[in-house]
Amino acid sequence: MPPVPPAAAVRAARPRRPLLRGVLRRAGVLLLVGGLLGGCSAAPARDAAERDVRAAVAAWAQRPPDRLAGIPLEGWAYEVGAVRRDGDRATAEARLDYRLAGYDTAPAGSVREVRLGRSGGRWRVTGEGPGPGAPQQLWDQGPVSAARGAHALVLGTGRDAGELSGIAAEADRAVAAAGAAWPRPWAGRVVVLVPGSTQGMAALLGRPAADYAGMAAVTTGSTGAAAGPADRIVVNPAGYAELSAAGRGVVLAHEATHVATRTATSARTPLWLSEGFADWAAYRAGATAPAGAAPALGRAVRRGELPAELPRNEAFAFGGDPEVLARAYEGAWLACRLIAQRWGEEALVGLYERAGREPLPGALEGVLGLDEAELTRAWQEALRREAAGVRPG
């Protein structure tokens, strides 16, 4: 693996997750039992057994599982929907609602399935896990340990304390790099999840493990939202372990930049700009040359395969051709690097902001004073110079 491979090692994934709100505070824990999963305001009449099942879930939910003892949780609540009973066994569909204290500005939600059994005339919870089709939570994979940095909370399962502390220190440096590149208000802190394997990472994200082969980390979060659960940077321990110290720093700085820029990012933002900006921020403080960080694109240009256009969104697709993916990330970084060098860093930041609010042609004209064709020609010329070993002015 190249020493600092942005295309192979980093990716941003931003799935939206369902959220809910608790209404009853008891023993410091929000507890909501009742209501339907679909949010209906009127609950149907329930027989005594169903009421007993719901009461058992309520009693059990007064404190989080022991495997979460080290996590700064608040607002832990289950909203119970449908209840299915089969003799002395029952299953309750529920939404879990919780916050990480000091990080989440709104509840993080998860669809769960609570299993119960009846013995001696009493219902008791016997287990709990993801609802049908829902991704796992980190604690589904085993006891969770925590490490804190000045600006980072790292949660892991199946990892030793020294490893988590090292990631917390690196995440602190990543937050500083992201803040230096993005001079706009943001939370200035990150949450990092470290599962035990690539398969564990995929289970947290609800995608096949093959999608994350060779990657070191991804970021989750809802783009454009002003308030919500803190973005989670999810580390692939296998990919992360293969990187050099410099490579790990670039990966986490890239992902921290996605966290910093999330509220300015929208469906309008082209991926070459969002991914290129994240790589530019990660490399910004170093002296990384394209020969080291953009080898695939450099080889292609020297073969006479100059890209005809800036990378399209589909070139960044999960599970795509690795060579196409590498060239897309490398080309995106070099485009943002060119803008910062020729028009200035503030112009690059301004272009990012405007491209999230309006079509790209207007943003380019308003900030750089040129159209996409002109930017593409400038980028192509820069690629030729870089491939020839000449730094563009």
Rank of each mutant, 00 (worst) to 15 (best):
G158R: 09
G158V: 10
G158W: 08
R159L: 10
D160C: 09
D160F: 04
A161G: 12
A161E: 13
A161K: 10
G162D: 12
G162F: 08
E163V: 07
E163K: 05
E163Y: 08
S165Q: 14
S165D: 14
G166K: 05
I167K: 00
I167D: 00
I167S: 02
A168L: 01
A168P: 00
A168G: 05
A169Y: 05
A169K: 04
A171Q: 04
A171H: 06
A171S: 08
A171P: 01
D172C: 03
D172H: 03
R173V: 03
R173N: 08
A174T: 00
A174K: 02
A174Q: 00
V175Y: 01
V175H: 00
A176W: 02
A177P: 03
A177F: 01
A178R: 01
A178K: 00
G179K: 04
G179F: 04
G179V: 06
G179N: 05
G179L: 06
A180I: 03
A180R: 06
A181G: 09
A181H: 02
P183Q: 13
P185V: 13
P185I: 12
P185C: 12
W186P: 11
W186C: 12
G188M: 02
R189Q: 06
R189Y: 06
V190Q: 01
V190I: 09
V191S: 03
V191F: 08
V192H: 02
V194G: 04
V194Q: 04
P195G: 01
G196F: 11
S197M: 07
S197E: 08
T198Q: 13
T198M: 05
T198R: 13
Q199M: 07
G200A: 06
M201I: 11
A202Q: 01
A202P: 02
A202W: 01
A202S: 04
A203D: 11
A203Q: 10
L204W: 00
L204A: 02
R207I: 12
R207Q: 14
R207T: 13
P208T: 11
A210H: 12
D211N: 14
D211E: 15
Y212H: 13
Y212G: 10
Y212V: 09
G214W: 00
G214E: 04
M215F: 14
M215C: 12
M215D: 08
A216D: 05
V218G: 04
V218T: 11
T219V: 11
T219K: 08
T219N: 06
T219I: 09
G221M: 07
S222T: 15
S222H: 13
T223K: 15
G224N: 12
G224V: 12
A225H: 15
A225V: 15
A225T: 15
A225P: 13
A226S: 15
A226R: 15
A227Y: 13
G228F: 01
G228P: 01
P229H: 10
A230W: 05
A230I: 07
A230G: 09
R232W: 08
I233K: 02
I233C: 04
